[in-house]
């Protein structure tokens, strides 16, 4: 138990999200957590009616957070990603991205298991074994070359598999678009990440550091899409919300029912 507590303290110190949520300023952040958890509890049964439904009762708060996040992107992330794409050769950028994905694998296997997805757990374990050896400690995605692709898994998804509803849309500071369920999921993932228990203390920074660099790399790689959503759309909040909810639900396996497909020709040419 003491070991767990120690680890918990370490994670708190290392993970920027946790640091933010616990220390900057702690009173506000505790409120945010209470808010997220109670929102989840309140809306525990609220599953979206269809792939495109939007449940956003906290829209005015979310919009303010969105503006804050946009300011952060404009001041830090976007310039950093500009420097990144200027100076980091694409081979190195791919390596960093691969390494970050590699470090995510233990947590994903854990969630595969929690979801009783043994095939997924085996695939991800095989990826870990292959990329950790042939893939030069995860820098090269050798597993993908033989068709072993990541079976992405996180605790938000695990909650979904366990029947917990999505809950309200929430835009988190720094972290970005989420839902009540995924907010709890991200927090649990940060605490459960096997890596933080396996790695020696002096290597704890690696995960966080690589994640940050990989995030800058992703921002650079998908610059046109992110810029188009954040800076070129008339209402970036609605676009980001739509983007997140639809891709997330798709990732969780939700598909349009035939009757939900919109037929724009209906009545147009009849």
């Amino acid at each position: 138990m003491q070991r767990f507590k120690d680890k918990l303290m370490k994670i708190r110190q290392k993970n920027p999200l946790v640091v933010f949520l616990t220390q900057v300023p702690s009173a506000v952040c505790r409120k945010l957590w209470v808010f997220a958890v109670s929102a989840l509890a309140l809306s525990a049964c609220a599953a979206p009616e269809n792939l495109e439904a939007i449940y956003d009762p906290y829209e005015s708060v979310n919009r303010r957070t969105h503006e804050f996040n946009k300011g952060l992107d404009r001041a830090l992330l976007r310039p950093a990603s500009g420097v990144y794409s200027e100076f980091v050769p694409s081979g190195l950028a791919t390596g960093i991205s691969n390494f970050s994905n590699f470090l995510d694998l233990p947590g994903e296997v854990l969630n595969n298991v929690l979801q009783f997805d043994l095939a997924g757990a085996m695939t991800n374990s095989a990826r870990f074994a292959v990329n950790g050896t042939v893939g030069f400690l995860g820098l090269y995605d050798a597993a993908a070359e033989v068709g072993l692709y990541a079976v992405s898994a996180d605790f938000g998804q695990t909650l979904d598999k366990w029947g917990v509803g999505e809950g309200a849309f929430i835009e988190l500071p720094i972290y970005g678009a989420s839902t009540a369920r995924d907010t709890v999921g991200s927090g649990v993932d940060a605490l459960l990440n096997p890596l933080s228990y396996i790695l020696p203390d002096e290597w704890q920074f690696v995960g966080t550091g690589i994640d940050t660099v990989a995030m800058i790399g992703d921002r650079a790689r998908f610059a046109t899409t992110v810029d188009s959503v954040l800076y070129e759309s008339a209402d970036s909040y609605s676009q980001a919300r739509l983007f997140y909810l639809q891709s997330r639900r798709h990732e969780l396996g939700m598909r349009l029912e035939e009757e939900d497909y919109f037929d724009p020709y209906e009545g147009l040419y009849d």
């Binding site: 495109e52 008339a234 609605s238 739509l242 639809q246 891709s247 798709h250 990732e251």
Partner: peptide, 16 residues
């Protein structure tokens, strides 16, 4: 990846 182009564009034009 599940992102409906028509819906994004209706949202965008609606916002404009």
């Amino acid at each position: 990846e599940g992102l409906n182009m028509l819906l994004s564009e209706r949202t965008e034009i609606g916002a404009m």
